[in-house]
Write a protein that binds this DNA or RNA. Structure first.
Lengths: 334, 334
DNA sequence: AGCTAATTCGTAAACGTTTACGAATGGCTG
DNA sequence: CAGCCATTCGTAAACGTTTACGAATTAGCT
């Protein structure tokens, strides 16, 4: 159907090798024939078959990006970072929404591998993502984003979740809160665990350990935050403050508190995590810890490209960026 | 580097055609050799080269999806719809963020064409997207999502933007507002235009035409909404109500109003468009018109697959879904 | 003129698959 | 036992490119 390089060759009266060279601006073809061939290509609406080209060049100009939930405003931001960076290199990205499901993750990674993507960027769904991926023994460079495994051979770009969470918790402690709860997201998520650890460590350091008020997480979404907080309220457990594993969880938590006539921050202080765009709405005004989402995306892509350049896989690249506590309106002195 | 079908053939002591057939479960190879070959494939970590396969099968199992701004929560939702539907067919999707830029759109489409995607789903950036795309004379099936051109040969899945906008405007009129403003998004966006027309028609029908209070749009984002409303306020133009081309614009509008000490809905009623997830937050509680975002995505993918099945391109498929006015808390009787 | 070197192009192989066609083997029927 | 069909596999071509190698032509130089 589509016009190929051979068709052009027939029209131009040259061999198809010459056509290929002309279109790729090789020096060993004369200016005139180059012009001629390019003209013919234009006139016939020729479009190079990238997949044929990819076969011989062993390069698909394609990256894979796995995110747990593209509906969480955190991820579109990193996706943009990845894509913009990839674009500068002429690469496209496969977006894969894993739904916090490691099965689906592996499924996706396998097809990305079969499609011979040049690299894979993973915002992992759970802690066993790492082993599972490792067991795949991929040839493709992989870089994790948002959380890390302790396997130093893997590359990642993260913020120090634990420290960030500690910062948030200590801020709450400074404000005079002692009964501080943690409401988590997916329990098997590494980021969730790190954030929980940061929270607990901060309490421990300030001698508040016995006050730890854990609400086990379930999912990184509004409903989960709402339900967990509601349940806690129903049990009569009303903490002074709550640190949430996520901004959207925080939104659900606030929703639950206020629908039970607890004022935020009047009665309960709340701090989120991620600083999604909607956290800064005056009506929301959520105190939270910010991550450089876009930059994390572009840096992850950057690492992939470095790995592609350097032929040997080499050691893992590790980038840990600084979080920032954004003090807004959902926390108050007690 | 990677193990190929020929390597497996050598190990198994059969021809590589047999290997191919075995791995694809062709009937003409005996059960035993099939098992044998599959075992060898597993042991050697064989992964089929999809791009080589794609070359001969002329099929990449890949779709392209163009969205203007993945950061607008509307688009991740349709992206999910597209992706989930595509996944059921074993397809992956290239996500392309066009930034409301038709140049970038065309650029993307060209590389998608070169990469021989099976189909392209476009949430167009502007009204001239249609002609530009048409002039590309693509072989790939294309379906538009979110807005249509009058060229009936093109496929699309949309809601009736004009009607939806009319609904919203009439609701405002019913509530007793007469001075109703429209704050738009990107001016050359078709959806924006349709929504503006719906607004104006509603006013006309109710004899309010002279009251039309147009604030020309600039972009589909919060800053734009904020700036336009702020400017209007600065000029002393405080409408009774404002219909926004977008939820995030509405958020910006509300922000501007309230930071100037106008109460919503006490002083000014506001209605948005899209019903993004954050519109339903109690603190936001935005009255808006909802689109079945996820379904629109999956239906668009559906059309693509139908087109792939039917060899001839055929007529355009047109799906127009029903919007729903979601009455929440940002509108009040006057 | 004769030789070398540069320029320009064509031939063919390769990338890793799928698949049409044909060949070999074996079993069955009459 | 001849003939035939079914089963199972191999050979080779094809998909649309890139590129190493070599051939042909021209130009430059002595």
């Amino acid at each position: 159907m589509a016009v190929t390089i051979k068709d052009l060759a027939k029209i131009a009266g040259v061999s198809y090798a010459t056509v290929s060279r002309a279109l790729n601006d090789h020096p060993e073809v004369s200016i005139e024939t180059k012009e001629q061939i390019k003209k013919i290509a234009r006139e016939n609406g020729y479009s190079p078959n990238e997949i044929a080209r990819g076969l011989v060049k062993k390069n698909t100009n394609t990256l894979g990006l796995l995110v747990p939930d593209i509906s969480n405003p955190y991820f579109p931001e990193v996706a943009k970072g990845v894509e913009d960076r990839a674009n500068r290199e002429g690469y496209n990205i496969f977006l894969c929404n894993t739904g916090w499901n490691t099965e689906k993750e592996i499924q996706y990674i396998k097809t990305l591998r079969d499609k011979r993507v040049a690299g894979i960027i993973i915002a992992p769904a759970a802690s066993d993502t790492y082993k599972k991926v490792k067991s795949l023994e991929l040839d493709n460079p992989v870089v994790y984003i948002g959380s890390r495994s302790d396997d130093r051979s893997m590359s990642f770009v993260i913020i120090d979740n634990e420290k960030a969470s500690s910062m948030a918790t200590e801020y709450l402690i400074e404000l005079g809160h002692t009964d501080i709860a943690f409401i988590g997201g997916n329990e098997n998520s590494v980021a969730n665990e790190e954030r929980f650890n940061g929270y607990r460590n901060a309490l421990k350091i300030h001698g508040l350990e016995r006050e730890v008020h854990i609400v086990k997480g379930s999912s990184f979404n509004r409903e989960s935050g709402f339900n967990l907080m509601s349940a806690s309220i129903k049990e009569g457990r009303i903490p002074h403050a709550v640190v949430c594993a996520n901004d959207i969880i925080a939104l659900g938590v606030i929703e639950a508190l206020e629908s039970n006539f607890y004022n935020v921050p009047g009665d309960v202080s709340v701090v989120g995590f991620d600083d999604i765009a909607y956290a800064s709405l005056p009506k929301i005004n959520l105190t939270t810890v910010a991550q450089p989402k876009y930059d994390m995306g572009s840096m992850a892509a950057d690492i992939v490209f470095r790995k592609i350049g350097a032929r040997q896989s080499g050691a893992g690249n590790h980038i840990v960026l600084q979080p920032a506590l954004i003090k807004r309106g959902t926390c108050r002195k007690r």
